[in-house]
């Protein structure tokens, strides 16, 4: 135990092996250890002094969770959770042992896939062709060029692009939801019409991604889809689901 406390990476089932050769946050990478309480274990290390959200440390956190997932279900902690000491970690495990065990059971055999929908900015030609307002403003701007006209045209184009992305986002959400065990809204990210995570069974992951790619290709003029996964189940550690807002529409 150190003065800086204990960094907590994840809660796993007791007996889950630590991945070999994997270090934790800090430089040099902190040595990982597992502390056990009943049916549960917590993967921890000494917290490095001056801990911040560095790229290196974010990757260490993420990589460890990815590798732990190969060993069994994982409750990923949010980046940067530090307990005062090992005792505090053990007390927390004991305090909600059945809750954590139930969550691990719920996530067993699943991973998270994140989908972001952004406006397809190279769809300008389509927008001009399809959107009456944009066409009208474009003609106006050509007849009477100027700051005001450009501003209005640009605003209309941005709105049209966002609307196309939101519409496509709603459709892809509808298509993919039946393939997932659960769906959760992601945090708002600037520029994203949709940020959503799916809880997908491991065996169904490839089919899910293939379906998403198929949709992305078919709708490339409407939306840019960015897929990330398989990921640790960051968005599904809580039992209750979050409604998924589709922005910009």
């Amino acid at each position: 135990m150190t003065a800086d406390g204990v960094y907590v990476y994840a809660i796993t089932r007791a007996g889950t092996a630590l991945p070999e050769g994997q270090g934790g946050v800090g430089s040099p990478p902190a040595r990982l250890r597992s502390v056990r309480q009943g049916r549960l274990a917590a993967v921890i290390s000494d917290a490095p002094p001056d801990l911040r959200a560095r790229r290196r440390d974010l990757l260490a956190h993420q990589d460890l969770l990815m590798r732990l997932m190969d060993e069994g279900p994982v409750l990923p902690m949010r980046f940067g959770m530090v307990a005062p000491g090992e005792d505090a970690v053990l007390r927390q495990l004991a305090a909600d042992e059945s809750g954590h065990a139930a969550a691990l059971k719920r996530l067993a055999g699943c991973h998270e896939i994140n989908l972001k929908a952004l406006a397809a900015e190279d769809a300008l030609a389509d927008v001009v062709a399809e959107d009456g307002t944009v066409r009208r403003l474009r003609d106006a701007a050509r007849r009477r060029p100027g700051y005001e006209a450009s501003l209005r045209l640009g605003e209309a184009v941005a709105a049209a692009l966002a609307r196309r992305a939101s519409d496509a986002g709603r459709r892809v959400l509808r298509e993919l939801t039946p393939r997932a065990r659960a769906v959760a809204a992601g945090p708002e990210v600037q520029g994203c019409a949709l940020n959503v995570s799916f809880l997908v069974e491991r065996d169904a992951g490839d089919a899910f991604l293939a379906e998403a790619h198929r949709f992305a290709s078919a709708n490339r003029g409407h939306v840019e889809l960015r897929l990330a996964g398989p990921l640790p189940c960051y968005s599904f550690v809580a039992a209750e689901a979050r409604p998924v807002p589709v922005g910009g529409g």
């Binding site: 800086d4 406390g5 907590v8 809660i11 917290a47 002094p49 001056d50 801990l51 911040r52 959200a53 790229r55 974010l58 990757l59 956190h61 993420q62 990815m66 409750l75 990923p76 902690m77 949010r78 980046f79 940067g80 959770m81 530090v82 307990a83 005062p84 505090a88 927390q92 998270e112 994140n114 972001k116 992601g186 945090p187 990210v189 940020n195 995570s197 960015r226 990330a228 996964g229 398989p230 990921l231 640790p232 960051y234 968005s235 550690v237 809580a238």
Partner: peptide
């Protein structure tokens, strides 16, 4: 999960939080 950029908000904003633990520093 090749690019950290696309999952950054999940690592920082999702995942389990235990109230008595602190996000030191």
């Amino acid at each position: 999960a090749g690019t950290l950029y696309d999952v950054l908000e999940l690592i920082l904003d999702r995942g389990m939080v235990i109230d008595v633990f602190i996000r030191v520093s």
